[in-house]
Amino acid sequence: MTDTIIALEHVDKWYGPSFQVLKDCTLAVPKGEVVVVCGPSGSGKSTLIKCVNALEPFQKGEIVVDGIRLHEKGVNLPKLRARVGMVFQHFELFPHLSVLENLDLAQIKVLGRGKQAARAKSVALLQRVELSAHADKFPGQLSGGQQQRVAIARALAMDPVVMLFDEPTSALDPEMVSEVLDVMVQLAQEGMTMMVVTHEMGFARKVAHRVVFMDRGEIVVDARKDAFFGDVGNERAKQFLSKILQH
């Protein structure tokens, strides 16, 4: 399976000696697919996605990202992470840099791109997320939705092979959710491989290929979108869906 971008194989993770946060998680994200991961809070979905680019260690099992095995000796994590875009719940833009500088920095320092090439890329990406007018502002001067769109552009500037989203809209005011989701939908429709932890089931219905439901550290459902929203078959998932779809 050369076209699998992310493969999790029987991943176990413990916090401390006794608390297991991930139990035997196995999951594959093929190239070009959008996989939405949902589940109640504390189910381990954020932990799972952070394991994918090794921001969180895991004790057992293996994760393979674009052919690179994370537990292999001498694996170059910075090099791997540079090819995996990540968007955080709290944006995490660098507050001391302007919007453009936020986009430039890793292109120059990590990829070794020339300043002009990096800047051209940054300008184009800002245009794409419709924030050209804010290029010289600082993150603290932008709304949450604008900051998150900058964060997406910053991740895209690295030409990632896959994008990870960790609850990208959870920290946003309701009226700003759609501007971020619009960018993500567009990205999905262009064929970007995406793994998205979110409760936005509208987004899942629109662009997801598969939906994964986690509960207490386990992947309990991994289904095609239609199957998931048709009849999920799992009682916990049904309950969860009925609760979040009520509103």
Binding site: N53, L55, P78, R81, F88, Q89, A106, K109, M158
Partner: peptide, 16 residues
Amino acid sequence: RGQMAAGLALGFTLPQ
């Protein structure tokens, strides 16, 4: 805490 994660996620080494 997320600032460190954001730096690492972009491919910076820890010193960077």
